[in-house]
Design a protein around this nucleic acid. Structure first.
Lengths: 324, 324
DNA sequence: GTGAAAGCGCTAACAA
DNA sequence: TTGTTAGCGCTTTCAC
């Protein structure tokens, strides 16, 4: 392993100078000759220098570890998010530490643990926003120098502890579904509402209504299927704001000899792994969670090295397959 | 953060003694009074001591990071594996670094990178087993003190570089599917073969044959469906060694008015997230990848601290739902 | 059975 | 603009 000392020897300078020339920390405003800096960087590159985050953060009194608190699911969404986070951290030579849960107790434990270990930053959903215990702990973590980036599936115009956030625009997701169905000259629009993801439904219904069309909102999948069967207004456009219900719907309609892709057009949400394998294959809204993970890490690392990044709202994407 | 120095002060002993009392490294055969050891451990626990892997490995000239090389998928299987690895590492205060790819170039880069950084251990699929470049690099990584645990979906009776491995018994998976279907008094057994997962098919067909029944093997899903429709030997038992084809099959049969769960019984493999949402819900074989990940980390850490663990063959599990 | 001293690679504070 | 010194928390000699 190439160390600063070796580079110093090779370039005929001292270790601290080399350190300053290679550090990503912009706070180091100690001036130095540009020529020297260039020279050192060149030598470092030639020798294949890789920074030892360990030693860097040992000195700082911190841990070069990015802690992540994620929902305890094991599906494509989580896989994408972890992949984004892991790849980007890897690229920047930061190891990661993942926790999976959703309970308050484990959330508090996570923050407390990150604080004790002096992990340099954390990525988390903004769970327990109003909880006083959580609030106190978060504040204390930040006071100890810890940085935070939030990931969420909501809107972006709010603030929590002055945190940077990366969100997916779920309202837009619903809107994209509506716009796609509106092109199809349909007789009937219907969707379903589920708590926690109401924005997707709003994006859909409001867009349909803006186009002067009527949209029905069901309270459950079975109610929706019943309504469609009774109305018999084909072709009908159906937006199910989660793939799981969309897959169930495809199966149920086909069992009832209703032609999915012709009598009823179905759009799901999330682009889970198996959604492409139904017949007809499911048209769905994909949340770019790999990118969300990447962005979260990038922003966190910027913040750790002292240059604060802006919050971002990421756009979901319509994946057109056969069901609509 | 509680340090060894603080514990030393509190317990009236020196730092090195405390270090020896708390280190997980069994190589430290320096004797010490049992009473002292107990006392130190108690004090450490009371003060909430957490080891600083950073400092520990800085001294060792290594990195306290577990590198993982995983296939670049974003599905439930990978989510489960990452979850298992991440949780177990977290529990042992080891950060992780994930790489995702399947190409030889990136595999070599991963090993080389792990070697340069002196990452204390890696978890990987045994890609490029016969490749001379890969072989050399792996050997060199091991020579530098790096430990390896392999994860694979195969049998366990082979060795590579004397590595510890954690595998899922895919033959057993096929066998479980067969045993379940054999109880159903069926007229016809049929399955499909895909490269890379031939063991699942073997487990199935051999078990059916041992029961003196005839089993048909198709070369593709469409061929299988065609054969079932032509044979018309209902009820038929179908084993699709991947959920994706099983889901497609459920849809296709229902479109053709063949009753899944009655005329044809279908068993899939992998228990992807959406498999529970088809109608009828898919009966499938679940690979316990969370456990695989956990075991891999446990064995790796044992090895890092000098006590070598045995290879394990993990058993998959039949998840009975409605399709069979 | 225990402690003193040195050093892992790096950076911050200060001196030159 | 560059170099010197000290120290982060831990482990490893080696002395007692």
């Amino acid at each position: 392993m190439v160390t600063l000392a070796e580079i110093a020897r090779e370039s005929g300078l001292s270790v601290p100078v080399v350190s300053r020339a290679l550090s990503p920390n912009p706070h180091k405003d100690t001036r130095m000759a540009d020529a020297t800096k260039m020279h050192i960087r060149e030598v470092a590159k030639r020798m294949g220098y890789l920074p030892n985050r360990n030693a860097e953060f040992l000195k700082r009194g911190q841990n070069p570890v990015i802690g992540c608190f994620l929902p305890p699911r094991t599906d494509s969404l989580l896989a994408k998010l972890m992949k984004g986070i892991a790849e980007e951290s890897e690229k920047n030579h930061f190891p990661v530490s993942f926790h999976f849960d959703m309970t308050k107790a484990s959330y508090l434990e996570f923050i407390e643990c990150s604080r004790q270990y002096k992990n340099c930053g954390i990525i988390t959903y903004p769970y327990f926003k109003m909880d006083p215990e959580a609030e106190t702990l978060i504040a204390s973590y930040q006071k100890g120098g810890g940085k935070i980036v939030l990931i969420e599936g909501g809107c972006s115009n709010w603030q929590w502890h002055d945190c940077i956030s990366v969100s997916v625009d779920n309202y837009l997701g619903g809107k994209l579904a509506a716009e796609h169905l509106l092109k199809k000259n349909l007789k009937h629009f219907i969707t379903c509402r589920y708590d926690n993801i109401l924005e997707r439904t709003s994006g859909f219904t409001e867009t349909i209504q803006e186009a002067q069309q009527v949209v029905t909102i069901a309270d459950s999948l079975s109610a929706l299927i019943e309504k469609v069967k009774i109305a018999k207004q084909y072709p009908a456009g159906i937006f199910l704001p989660r793939d799981q219900e969309a897959v169930t719907a495809i199966c149920e309609f086909q069992r009832n000899n209703i032609n999915v892709g012709k009598d009823v057009l179905i759009i799901g949400y999330d682009d889970h792994y198996l959604s492409q394998y139904t017949r007809p294959a499911l048209t769905t809204i994909s949340q770019p969670f790999v990118e969300v993970g990447r962005l979260a890490v990038q922003k966190l690392i910027s913040d750790i090295y002292g240059s604060r990044a802006k919050s971002t709202l990421v756009e979901p994407q319509l994946i057109i397959r056969e069901s609509a």
